[in-house]
Design a protein around this nucleic acid. Structure first.
Lengths: 217, 217
DNA sequence: ATTTGTTTCAAACATTTGTTTGAAATGGTG
DNA sequence: CACCATTTCAAACAAATGTTTGAAACAAAT
């Protein structure tokens, strides 16, 4: 029994290893560009394992999305309510910073963010589920925050537009990283830079929101 | 001679047809997903034509980028200087609106914008040239405008960050269109909507710039 | 009309990639 | 040990795709 436990701990079941490897590869390369052979090699598994355990590349991808979602939920059990009383600006900054971290952190934490970012640009059949289960809730959360910032007279359209203005600034750095690093060599994405970025996006957006608010009447 | 001229006018040389077809297909599908067979079918050409005229798929793609650049230059011979005296806000709105149009117009006008947008997310070997020849100049142009708006005390870093805040808002709608149309059904991208979008992005950004300006000291 | 250089074409080729297969290995159970 | 289900594996398969090839068609010049 000790031996069994030890073995389980050391050599994780193939299915799990595939899931981990696939998460990383899909997050890096995207669904299309990732190959099952890459994934299996990384998981020390046979090429046929993907089909045996997940019924195919698509099935594996679907499982990876669920897996990443579970991992993220585990790590942030309930981000929806900020416990302390914070200024709205600070609350927005926290949202933005968390968003950036999900896109740029290394390791398992960032899988979900990267996968979702990929889905936006190069959608697969899984996009509908991703939007409904993951993007939609976050969108509602940000909209609530923005509505508070824009005031009760703001229209749904205004809230939507401002939401996209905020989100776009965060996603941009991930989507366009290849261009940014060529256009501005030396631009880095370490933790410190991420905080500075979040500060800028928040300040810029607070000004933008104020401007949008004025133009309401 | 008349017969020849007529024929040339009616049945354009294969090379040109390939270029046109490839521009459309690459803009729609991206470099990887586009297949030479698709392109050749659309151009009524043989599969081997691509290799004969351009040395391969990569060569064709490189030519397509140059071709799209020429087309865009032809259409907007010199956008760099706005002839009339405009308020900076109006100037920014024109820039933003033109940007959006390049991404969402149908037909040849939009090829370059779409191709560049693709390059940002899914870079190819051609990205370096694209950045240097196309993105860099536009970037400089926007930076000049923003520096005027931010005032002489603004740092290069501030200008860069604000530039990305503006550009990101424009690109977002193109990059994330699949998500937007699921999240906000009915969101359209017709000419009227594009003008409204440009107005929002401009107003939002003007507020953001003001905010960024304040935080300079 | 013949020649010469260019262009087109159908067919084949080589490679990649997702999937299938049938046998071998594995591990628990009676 | 023998039996059974589960899992792994090397090999093969089928489809897609970029590229090559060698002959045919074509056009212009001599």
């Amino acid at each position: 029994m000790v031996r069994i436990k030890a073995k389980v701990a050391l050599v994780e079941p193939t299915r799990q290893q595939l899931l981990e490897a696939a998460s990383a590869v899909f997050a890096e390369r995207g669904f299309r560009a990732a190959t099952v052979r890459q994934i299996c090699q990384r998981a020390n598994a046979n090429v046929a394992a993907v089909n045996y355990h997940f019924g195919g590349k698509a099935g594996l991808y679907a499982e990876v999305l669920r897996h990443a979602h579970r991992c993220a939920e585990e790590r942030h059990p309930n981000v929806s309510v900020s416990p302390k009383r914070l200024t709205p600006a600070r609350e927005l900054e926290i949202f933005v910073h968390a968003f950036l971290q999900r896109l740029f952190d290394e390791g398992r934490t960032a899988w979900l963010g990267k996968l979702m970012s990929r889905e936006m640009v190069e959608p697969t059949a899984a996009l509908d589920a991703v939007v409904e289960e993951q993007i939609q809730p976050n969108s509602r959360r940000l909209q609530d925050l923005l509505r508070r910032l824009l005031g009760p007279r703001s229209s749904a359209e205004q809230v939507r537009l401002c939401e996209m203005s905020v989100v776009s600034q965060c996603l941009f750095y991930h989507h366009c990283r290849p261009v940014i690093s060529r256009l501005f060599p030396g631009f880095d994405f370490g933790p410190k830079a991420l905080r500075r970025l979040a500060a800028h996006i928040t300040r810029f957006s607070m000004g933008g929101l104020q401007s949008a608010k004025k133009g309401l009447g």
